[in-house]
Simulated assay, not measured.
Amino acid sequence: MAQRIDVKDLNIYYGDFRAVADVEMSVEPRSVTAFIGPSGCGKSTFLRTLNRMHEVIPGARVEGRVEIDGVDLYAPDVDPVAVRRQIGMVFQRPNPFPTMSIADNVLAGVRLNNRRISKGDAQDLVEQSLRGANLWNEVKDRLDRPGSGLSGGQQQRLCIARAIAVKPQVLLMDEPCSALDPISTLAIEDLISELKADYTIVIVTHNMQQAARVSDRTAFFNLAGQGQPGKLVEVDDTSVIFSAPREQATEDYISGRFG
Score class of each variant (00 low, 15 high):
N207H: 11
M100E: 04
Q209W: 06
M25H: 00
T250R: 03
L171N: 07
Q226D: 10
E251A: 14
R162H: 01
I203P: 04
V83W: 10
Y199N: 06
V202W: 06
T200R: 10
Q248C: 03
R84D: 07
G64E: 01
A249G: 03
T238D: 02
I164K: 03
V56R: 13
A60Q: 08
P96T: 11
S243K: 12
L150T: 13
V66Y: 02
I201E: 08
K8D: 03
L47E: 04
I36W: 02
R85H: 09
M100A: 11
D22C: 05
A197G: 15
V90A: 09
R162P: 00
S215F: 02
R93T: 06
D72Y: 13
G37I: 05
V106Y: 03
I117L: 11
T99W: 10
Q123M: 13
S215Y: 01
I160K: 05
V204L: 08
T218S: 05
I188A: 09
S151D: 06
G147M: 06
G88N: 10
S118T: 15
A163D: 01
V81E: 15
K231Q: 13
F17Y: 12
D144T: 15
Q210L: 05
P146E: 09
Q128I: 12
E127Q: 15
E175C: 12
A103N: 04
L107D: 01
R85C: 07
I201G: 13
W136P: 04
L232G: 03
R61A: 14
L125C: 06
S178G: 13
D124P: 01
R65S: 09
E194H: 14
E189L: 05
V7Y: 01
V56T: 15
D198N: 14
R115F: 02
G147I: 04
P58H: 13
R84I: 07
E234Q: 09
R93G: 04
N113L: 12
F17D: 09
V235S: 09
L107I: 04
P38K: 08
E247L: 01
D77G: 15
G227V: 09
M53V: 12
R246K: 11
L73M: 13
D144N: 15
Q248W: 00
D236Y: 07
P146Y: 14
L143T: 14
A21G: 02
G109W: 01
V235A: 11
R48I: 12
D144F: 11
A163N: 04
R30N: 08
Q228P: 00
L186P: 00
P182N: 08
A75N: 14
F221E: 03
A122D: 06
L73T: 13
D236E: 13
I188G: 05
P96E: 07
D141W: 10
V23C: 03
R246F: 00
G109V: 02
S129C: 10
G88R: 07
F221L: 08
V83T: 15
F46I: 01
I12C: 11
L171K: 08
V204T: 08
I57F: 14
R30H: 03
A108G: 04
I117R: 08
L232R: 01
V32W: 00
